[in-house]
Design a protein around this nucleic acid. Sequence first.
DNA 1: GCCACAAAGAGAGCAGTGCTCTTGCTTTTC
DNA 2: GAAAAGCAAGAGCACTGCTCTCTTTGTGGC
Lengths: 213, 213
Amino acid sequence: MTEEIKTVARRHLASDGANLSLRAVARDLGMASSAVYRYFASRDELLTALIIDAYDALGAAAEHAAEGVRGDLDRWLAVALAVRDWALAEPHQWALIYGSPVPGYQAPPDTIGPATRVILLIAAIVREAYEAGRIPDQPPLTGRYAEELAAVAEQFAGRAPARLVGAAMSGFIHMCGAVSAELFGQLTNGVDEDRRGFFEFQMRGAAAFAGLS
Amino acid sequence: MTEEIKTVARRHLASDGANLSLRAVARDLGMASSAVYRYFASRDELLTALIIDAYDALGAAAEHAAEGVRGDLDRWLAVALAVRDWALAEPHQWALIYGSPVPGYQAPPDTIGPATRVILLIAAIVREAYEAGRIPDQPPLTGRYAEELAAVAEQFAGRAPARLVGAAMSGFIHMCGAVSAELFGQLTNGVDEDRRGFFEFQMRGAAAFAGLS
DNA sequence: GCCACAAAGAGAGCAGTGCTCTTGCTTTTC
DNA sequence: GAAAAGCAAGAGCACTGCTCTCTTTGTGGC
């Protein structure tokens, strides 16, 4: 039942965005709106469920795309293009997880696990490349943020230097920005035909910043 | 009067986000909700007015920051940091213009003018650097998107090559992504203290991609 | 001074929303 | 078979965007 509600809710998400109507979902299911509250304590809880599912679906798509691809750069590009493909297929789910936060909505801790799948995948790509000695040396970073990056590295990226972790995060952020820019209409009247090509161009730049090849 | 409504609406924007209540705004002004409709035909029209104002304020802040700064890289960094500063000061206005689009809302053509101020400013920085011969040569781009970029260049960036225009747009997109990531909570548990430093690190990377120095 | 007209606001009302509470029905469990 | 638990329905509250009609207010022309 919960699954059925989520399926219909996802359909409504595609037409109404984040302010989908719980009542309309209930109507589509042929039940009273109050009955839905047996499965989800509130509209926000429904949204949370959809958010977690979206993160998971995106993470799965990215991991699947990376499977079996050899070469650091190719793996990174495969991940980035898979993320873009998923976002183009599910624009409203993308908006839900990487768009502006829903007003008054506070993401519960359950979401941070699924939320990190993609960035962890990218971290793994970079770490493997680094540990295999395929990343050229770069001058170390200094400053407070470099220490924070080093702390992150210690947790997720083995012995990779702060600069590399920073470049990886930068690539992830750039990727999210590029997808959002495309979906949210920032590219209109600029690049309209070959957006995939332009996206790949940007992602190659991001990879070069990290020293991937 | 319209100005007064917008001011109160902006205050509500800060607490309720994009789904601010026209009735609540009217209440705050001590007038009936129907009276507001004399000044704005609909809630969407109010949002449009706020969007245009936000684009203009951001554009003005960016242009002001660039004034008098010498050096291509420094100008670019000044613009990027000014954009970030403005976004941190007005997170809900940022979400309004660069976050996920409001469901069912179609941005009218009036918005595209103000929307382009920042990217045009960046284009100007890059163009000047190129025309003064301060951008090292890079291999030309090929592909459909390269043609589109060349068309954009012809309009806004003089004789700059497609790769340079692409890198400039890439930097703009990266900047938007970095600001959004910070505002929308993607950086939580990663870089928490010195986000400004990390932002600048990314923007220096974006500048290098375009050949700015 | 007075009338006429237009602008500005008030108020009621419609259909819709999230959510709660009470009531009833059905299925399981003892 | 009776008690208990799970599930759904319905009414209702306070809220929303928006429309309609009505009333007040201010101003220009004579």
